[in-house]
Simulated scan of single mutants.
Amino acid sequence: MDVVVLIGRILFVLLFLSSGFGHIAQRQTMAQYAQFKGVPMAAIATPASGVLLLAGALSVLLGVWADLGALLLVIFLVPTAVLMHAFWKETDPQAKQTEMISFNKDIALAGAALMLFAFFAHTGTDLGLTLTGPLFSL
């Protein structure tokens, strides 16, 4: 089971690692888009969210306080869904559909990250192939 969980962790964080890197490497372009979407202090929020993504993803991937890493991803995903993918504000049907898909993806990933948090916090040190145990205990 340990190997299956490790493979799942790897697959889960691939999106967050690439996105976090993009938030930092392409911060100016991404900050302009975030500003267009109404994100406050987009020039600061973009690289900060990239660091948040990378920290959460690496934590889950390496198993270093993976429960905390999963919570960091939730902290990124929920506000991102609301601020960046406000489909209810769109009037164009195609744009509305695209934003709704992205909103639902972010909310679903937040739910999965929340389940990972509970899994890591409940399983504790019984979960193999991690560098540390969880920070929290459920």
Rank of each mutant, 00 (worst) to 15 (best):
L83E: 05
L61Y: 05
A55F: 05
V74P: 03
M84K: 07
W88Q: 09
V51T: 04
K96T: 14
S49A: 13
L52V: 06
E90G: 08
V39W: 09
M41W: 13
L73S: 01
Q94R: 12
P93K: 08
A57V: 04
L58W: 07
D67L: 05
A42L: 11
D67Y: 06
A57K: 02
L83F: 05
P93D: 11
S59C: 04
S102W: 01
L58G: 02
A48W: 01
D92A: 10
I75Q: 05
M41L: 14
P93N: 09
A42T: 06
A45G: 07
V51P: 00
Q97R: 12
I44V: 14
T80H: 05
A57N: 03
L62K: 00
G38V: 10
M84W: 03
A45P: 06
G63Y: 03
L58F: 13
V82M: 13
F103E: 07
L53P: 03
A70P: 04
T46N: 12
T80K: 03
V78H: 01
A57F: 03
I75P: 02
A70W: 02
N104W: 09
M41P: 01
L83P: 00
V74M: 06
D67R: 08
D67G: 06
L68Q: 09
P40E: 15
L83A: 08
S102A: 15
V39Q: 11
